[in-house]
């Protein structure tokens, strides 16, 4: 494998990161209202959230991607490949993050709500000052695990022509098919190299937060 070959595949890193980060940010944001709907007292909202989460999680990511890119994108709206990948993975992430938030919410001791209410804190403060920071701490390790999973799932964006790591590796291996093994091994190594600092960062943040509370 030539230096140019390495360089070409490495050019996929920004797109891999963009799809992963875009999908995660979208999902982390959309997961909040979805979780709120799920724990809502309204049966309609709750039912809607359950249906959405089931649909988003049971259909394979690649089917969602094709649905958005070839289905919606060809007929009704003009959807670019990167947008389609971010939205498809983002929606699935929203469903998973909603469940992660819900689990974290349930892990908060009911006494925390009692105390916030008994002190007469306004609803906004009850959530922003008391509940959300605790939910965030509980969520952090699961969210980090999920991002690393998402990083790998971003490879399916190659199927619709997003020029990320897997797409470029595939492209190169077609031209130099006798070097496919090295090319894909290199692609795999890039994923590892991105995952490692992510995991380390998550551990560091988690450790910091714990150390502060246990001071």
């Amino acid at each position: 494998m030539t230096w140019q070959g390495l360089e070409l595949v490495a050019w996929g890193i920004p797109w891999t990161l963009a799809v992963t980060a875009g999908a995660f940010l979208l999902g982390a944001a959309l997961g909040v209202p979805l979780c709120a709907m799920h724990v809502s007292r309204s049966r309609v909202l709750h039912g809607l959230a359950v249906a959405l989460i089931v649909a988003l999680r049971s259909i394979p990511p690649i089917v969602w991607l094709f649905l958005l890119y070839f289905g919606v994108g060809s007929g009704y709206l003009k959807v670019g490949a990167v947008q389609a990948a971010v939205v498809a993975l983002g929606l699935i992430t929203a469903a998973n993050m909603a469940e992660i938030y819900r689990g974290a919410l349930r892990s908060i001791h009911p006494g925390q709500w009692d105390a916030a209410q008994a002190l007469g804190l306004p609803v906004r403060s009850e959530l922003v000052d008391v509940i959300v920071p605790q939910v965030f701490r509980v969520t952090l390790p699961s969210a980090a695990t999920y991002i690393i999973g998402l990083l790998k799932d971003s490879a399916i964006a190659s199927t619709i022509g997003v020029a990320e790591i897997t797409y470029l590796a595939n492209f190169l291996s077609r031209k130099q098919f006798n070097e496919s093994l090295t090319i894909f091994a290199f692609a795999g190594m890039l994923y590892i190299l991105i995952s490692l600092p992510l995991a380390a960062l998550a551990r560091l943040a988690d450790g910091r937060l714990r150390a502060r509370v246990a001071q």
Binding site: H109, G111, D114, A118, L119, D129, V130
Partner: peptide
Amino acid sequence: LRRRAGMVFQSFNLFPH
């Protein structure tokens, strides 16, 4: 009302963070 009536719980319920 809750401002005027303070409450202390069996499980303390301090905010851990």
